[in-house]
Amino acid sequence: MKYSAGNAEELKDKFWHELAGSSYVMLQLDGDPAGAAPMTASLDKHADSEIWFFTARDSRWARQGAATACYTSKGHDLFARFTGTLTEETDKARLDKQWSNFVEAWFPGGKTDPNLLFLRMDLGDAEIWSGELGALATAKMALGLNVRDEVAGKHVETAL
């Protein structure tokens, strides 16, 4: 069973909220599935179909293209897998907006560091799972009882 249309939007909103609180994802190029590695997603609260990444021009992501990211919230109560396309972001205003001291720590040459590659991920489809079980389901699990009914309907396939 999947979320209804109304609940799907709630789960999607929860995904964006959780990602803003902990923006680490496992990112891979679809053409290099063994190359998944942790990356920090740079978000804009007004952009819900794009995520940005700062990386090096000699990194695996410099090839760009179709990509997949996996996400687990801090509390392990939300999981997501989403797809998109990585391309170089050339908008200087966007670079300024997403830039932070944390990024500068990786690029001592600043925004003009020759090895800096600023990528935009135009988002496609996603699957989002809610891991919230509640007290009753948790107690049932601790006793080894069936919790399948409690987890049914905590999943949505959607476009981000």
Rank of each mutant, 00 (worst) to 15 (best):
K2Q: 15
S4R: 12
A5Y: 01
G6Y: 11
N7H: 15
L11T: 09
K12I: 15
F15T: 11
E18P: 07
E18C: 13
E18R: 12
L19W: 14
G21S: 14
G21F: 03
S22H: 11
S23C: 08
S23Y: 06
M26Y: 10
L27N: 03
L29F: 02
G31N: 09
G31F: 02
P33H: 10
G35R: 07
A36T: 09
P38C: 05
T40V: 07
A41K: 02
L43H: 07
L43Q: 03
L43G: 09
D44M: 12
D44T: 10
S49D: 15
S49K: 14
S49V: 06
E50Q: 10
W52P: 01
F53N: 01
T55N: 05
D58Q: 08
R60G: 13
W61S: 09
W61A: 09
A62S: 15
Q64T: 14
G65T: 07
A67W: 04
T68A: 03
T68H: 00
A69F: 03
C70Q: 12
K74R: 15
H76E: 11
D77F: 08
A80I: 05
R81F: 00
F82H: 01
G84K: 07
G84M: 03
T85I: 10
L86R: 08
T87F: 03
E89K: 05
T90N: 05
D91F: 13
K92N: 08
K92T: 13
A93Q: 14
R94K: 15
D96R: 12
K97Y: 08
Q98L: 12
Q98S: 06
W99V: 13
W99S: 10
W99T: 07
S100Y: 02
N101Q: 04
V103L: 04
E104M: 10
A105W: 03
F107W: 07
P108L: 11
K111P: 14
N115R: 08
L117V: 12
R120I: 06
M121C: 05
D122V: 05
L123D: 01
D125P: 00
D125C: 00
D125H: 01
A126W: 02
E127F: 07
E127Y: 02
S130R: 00
E132K: 11
L133M: 07
L133R: 04
G134Q: 03
G134C: 08
A137K: 07
A137P: 08
T138Q: 08
K140F: 11
A142G: 13
A142E: 06
A142V: 00
L143H: 08
L143F: 09
G144P: 02
L145S: 09
N146P: 06
V147S: 02
V147L: 03
V147H: 06
R148Q: 12
V151T: 12
A152G: 14
A159Q: 14
